[in-house]
């Protein structure tokens, strides 16, 4: 019975799902924009956490902030990676020109131009923007290259069928291209998040890039807690932050990635 219910859920879902998907996308984009605006306005670069008296509330907000930064960076990277990957694979000519260029871009260490970006964002009073930009840049290329890999594996017959049945433009993107590369988007996303977590300690420890910078200039997050606790010899804070980070990574892996990897199986061609 469970199987029938599952099938029923997808029963002739086309016409309604198109509207639903597009409106959901608009709502998500609007939601993110609002949250970002609020974040940039409300959050100040001042970090008032006292490492010697770290409360559970501080730890909760640090975790929330970190997750939120990663999420926003990921959404931006995901949205931008689709047109980039589509443009690169548009024709053999664009591929020949664009692939080496993007390869160089992704090889340039993000940290090489990190201080410049940080200073630019600080001038604009947007510390959060600096962190999100760094994480976004770190995540983007994993997604782009995974999508390129996926786009190149769409079977020729599927593309021919789309052409014969005159499925073009956005309709083709939504109904053929995106589902075809869905498994690659998931693996790319996994790698992107892994990259994000590993760059967190650099992205959130901003003060080391600012001349005469202090810990108060770091945005509150698990990354900045880890770095500052380590340099200040606060081993218990360091261990607690590390544990929370590992716990979050494990939970996200269990409740998000494992489910999505399982779902991706349905989108794989024989």
């Amino acid at each position: 019975m469970a199987t029938r219910h599952y099938h029923h859920h997808y029963h002739f879902s086309y016409v309604t799902s198109k509207k639903r998907h597009f409106s959901s996308l608009l709502i998500v984009i609007a939601f993110i924009t609002l949250i970002l605006l609020a974040l940039f306005r409300v959050l100040t670069p001042q970090n008032t956490v006292n490492l010697k008296q770290l409360s559970a509330e501080d730890l909760f907000f640090a975790s929330f902030n970190t997750l939120f930064r990663l999420f926003v960076s990921y959404v931006f990277a995901l949205i931008l990676s689709v047109p980039i990957a589509l443009f690169i694979t548009k024709s053999k000519k664009t591929e020949r020109i664009m692939l080496p260029i993007t390869d160089i871009f992704q090889s340039v260490p993000i940290l090489a131009f990190f201080p410049i970006i940080v200073l630019a964002f600080i001038k604009l009073q947007m510390i959060e923007g600096a962190v999100i930009f760094i994480l976004f840049m770190a995540m983007l290329w994993n997604l782009v290259f995974s999508m390129i890999g996926g786009l190149k594996t769409i079977p020729e017959d599927i593309l021919s069928a789309a052409q014969i049945y005159k499925i073009k433009g956005l309709r083709k993107l939504w109904y053929i291209t995106i589902p075809s590369i869905f498994p690659y988007i998931i693996t790319g996303s996994l790698l992107a998040w892994a990259q994000g977590w590993s760059l967190l300690i650099v992205a959130e420890a901003l003060h080391s890039y600012i001349p005469n910078g202090t810990i108060t200039q770091d945005p509150l997050g698990l990354g900045s807690l880890l770095v500052n606790a380590f340099y200040n010899g606060q081993n218990s804070v360091f261990l607690v932050s590390l544990t929370v980070m590992i716990l979050l990574i494990t939970l996200i892996n269990f409740f998000v990635w494992q489910k999505l990897l399982h779902l991706a199986e349905r989108y794989k061609f024989d």
Partner: peptide
């Protein structure tokens, strides 16, 4: 057109 591979979309049911 009917293709040698079938060219079916794996994420859709038969009727879809």
């Amino acid at each position: 057109m009917v293709f040698q591979s079938g060219a079916l979309l794996p994420w859709l049911t038969v009727e879809e």
